[in-house]
Design a protein around this nucleic acid. Structure first.
Lengths: 153, 153
DNA sequence: TCGCTCTGGTTGCATAGTACAACTGGCCGC
DNA sequence: GCGGCCAGTTGTACTATGCAACCAGAGCGA
C-alpha cells in the first residue's frame, strides 16, 4: 500500500468509514468540553437520557452508557449540585434513587440541545434534504448495532 | 422511507444526525482506551498523521489536531519511549525535531489499523455496498467541513 | 429471626489526557 | 548584539474515568 492510502483513493468504503469515524471521534473529544460551560458531553447525554426516559436510576445510566457506576455517581452528584437533576428515593426500594430532571435541568438541556442543533444545521446547511435523510438513517443504523457478546475470561 | 424518517418521530434529519453523532461521540470516548493496550486513540491518530505525511513536527501535529503543544510534547515523548517514533533534529533549524515512525511504529500502526478495520467490517457486515459507499461519502463530507471563523474577542 | 448474598450507590485511590503558564534554547531582523 | 519570535519541555492543576473497597437496603432460605 502506497503511502497514498491516506485519502481514500484505494480504500474500500469500510476503510473510509473507519478513518472518518476516527477523525470524528478525535474531534469530538477535543471539542466536547467547549460546548457549554456547565454541561460536558457526558452530562448532556445523561440529562438527555433522563428526559427521554422521564427519570431513571444511576445504574441504568451506567449500563446504558457503558460507564462505571462510580463515574455516573460522581456525574450525578455534580448535576445535583448544580441543580439540574434531583434524586427521589424509591419508596419501594430504599437502595434506589430515581433521578429526575428539575425544571432548570430541562431548560438547560433544551438550550444546549438547541445550541448543538444550530451548530449541526450550520454545518449541514448545504446538504440536500435527501442526503440528510440518508445520512441520518445510516448513523442510526450504525449506532443501533449491538456488539456480539465476547466470551471473555 | 421509512428508515430516513423513522428515527424520532417528529425529528428533522438534522436533529437525528445531531443526536446520533452525540451518541457516537460518547461511545467513542468510552471505548477509546480499549482498542489496543499500547495505543490510545490520540496516539493512534498521531501515528497515522506521521505515516500519512512521512514525518512532521510536533507543532504541526498540535495545530492539525487542535491540541496544546504541551499535550503533543508528552504524547510524543511517550511514543518515543515505547519506540514507535523517533526524533530527528532538523539540520537547518536546531529548534525543530522532525518526527518519524520507526519500523516498529509502522508495524504497530498497521496492526491497530487492521484491528479497527476488522471491527468496522464486522459492524458493517450486513450493509449493502451501495449504502457503505454513500455512508463513507457522507462522513467524509461531514468531516471536511471547516468551521466559519468566529470573531472572538 | 438470623445470616448470606445480591444489588444500588458512594468513596478512596490511581491513571490518562488535557490546558495554561513559565521556562529553555535556537533563529532572525534591526 | 539585543529584542522578539518560534519549537519544545516542564510544572501545575483539573476532569473524566475505572477499579476496589466499602456501606446500606432487599430478598431468600434455614
Amino acid at each position: 500500500m502506497t503511502a497514498a492510502e491516506g485519502e481514500g483513493e484505494g480504500e474500500t468504503a469500510v476503510e473510509t468509514i473507519q478513518r472518518e469515524m476516527t477523525v470524528f471521534a478525535r474531534r469530538a473529544r477535543a471539542s466536547a468540553g467547549r460546548m457549554h460551560p456547565e454541561l460536558s458531553l457526558v452530562s448532556y447525554t445523561l440529562l438527555g437520557h433522563l428526559e427521554e426516559r422521564g427519570g431513571c436510576r444511576a445504574t441504568d445510566l451506567a449500563a446504558h452508557y457503558a460507564l462505571d457506576k462510580s463515574t455516573v455517581s460522581r456525574q450525578v452528584a455534580a448535576l445535583e449540585r448544580t441543580g439540574l437533576i434531583e434524586r427521589r428515593l424509591d419508596p419501594e426500594d430504599h437502595r434506589v434513587q430515581v433521578l429526575h430532571l428539575t425544571d432548570t435541568g430541562r431548560e438547560i438541556l433544551a438550550q444546549v440541545t438547541e445550541s448543538r442543533r444550530a451548530a449541526f444545521r450550520e454545518r449541514l446547511a448545504d446538504w440536500p434534504e435527501e442526503d440528510l435523510q440518508r445520512f441520518a438513517t445510516y448513523l442510526t443504523r450504525y449506532n443501533a448495532w449491538i456488539p456480539a457478546p465476547k466470551d471473555r475470561g
